[in-house]
Design a protein around this nucleic acid. Sequence first.
DNA 1: CCAAAAAGCTAATCGCTTTAGCTTGGGGAG
DNA 2: CTCCCCAAGCTAAAGCGATTAGCTTTTTGG
Lengths: 185, 185
Amino acid sequence: MPRAGLSTTAVVDAALAVVDEQGLEALTLTAVAARTGVAVPSLYKHVGSLGELRVLIGVRVFEETAERLAAVAIGRSRDDAVAALMHAYRGYVLEHPARYAAMVPDPLHEPAYVAAGTKLLEVFLAVLSHYGLEGSDAVHAVRRLRAVVHGFASIEATGGFGMAEDTDVTYAQLIAMYLASLPRD
Amino acid sequence: MPRAGLSTTAVVDAALAVVDEQGLEALTLTAVAARTGVAVPSLYKHVGSLGELRVLIGVRVFEETAERLAAVAIGRSRDDAVAALMHAYRGYVLEHPARYAAMVPDPLHEPAYVAAGTKLLEVFLAVLSHYGLEGSDAVHAVRRLRAVVHGFASIEATGGFGMAEDTDVTYAQLIAMYLASLPRD
DNA sequence: CCAAAAAGCTAATCGCTTTAGCTTGGGGAG
DNA sequence: CTCCCCAAGCTAAAGCGATTAGCTTTTTGG
């Protein structure tokens, strides 16, 4: 019998596919094993435990987001950059709604998250530095941004906005609201 | 052997206690049964399934929040009322951080949520009506409020704010930011 | 006082995670 | 080119949580 040629990366890929297709609750070792064409216990050669797999998924999503945001911020500044960041963040969540839920648990308790989280933080800080924000002011500004963006995205991703009104309009208002909270010249 | 004298309400109470003390992941029928002094299958006389229990918990939290917000808005108007609402919302989450996570899943898909959600919506709409907001404008304003408040609360409840800066300050800024987005006379 | 519904219980099944221990493919050292 | 070793897979089995079936007993309305 030939070998499957699995790897930790491949397992995480398969797990993400399961999450995308069937939701976070459907993330089970049985499902991942089925998708990779391997017996369930074989996964332990690459992953350690289901809990660890969840963390790995969260880290991956975090990294992808950070990468995407960093890319989109290049060549823009101030309001333009902030708006682009906010749109990119929401865009990722809209593309992978189920995946987003995987990012939430144990954000900073898990050391593995710290690296990815730090990179994301740095992107935010870099953009805000053009407003002259430093130190505590910058921290609070980043937190405001995270609250707005995460709050909207998580509600939208779970279908929490019941009314028929266009959510694009709401988001545009949120962006304007946040920008207005930044120092003006 | 005497009877335990359980009821759906009592089961939900016990479940909330479990969540408060050990977190949402620890919510298991075994844990609830242990706390109520009953065998696991006996719970099915009151609850239907673990999934249904989760929904019942979510509804309860929703209702408590709505009640609390409604109470705090009485006798206040405009900025005063909005700020009070936002503080009360955050206060509830800080008091029961683990409980808050139970509110998120399936917000509107579950019909049971609709009633509680509607009440909460009405409180928001009533407060915003003093700004002359109606129809779509009011819907977007409520969504902005939900995004800010839920975003901040959920990040804070899961310990997502890593830096040492005082979160009270951040929240005060968020309130000011939101108020600034409402129509001024 | 009596019947029947409601509340509990025990036994058993099923799916999922995890551990233990065996087998073998395949690459590198000689 | 061959042989050895390790990593990748597998099967077997234990354990836990949810759920169902079916029995017993308390309680309560008539």
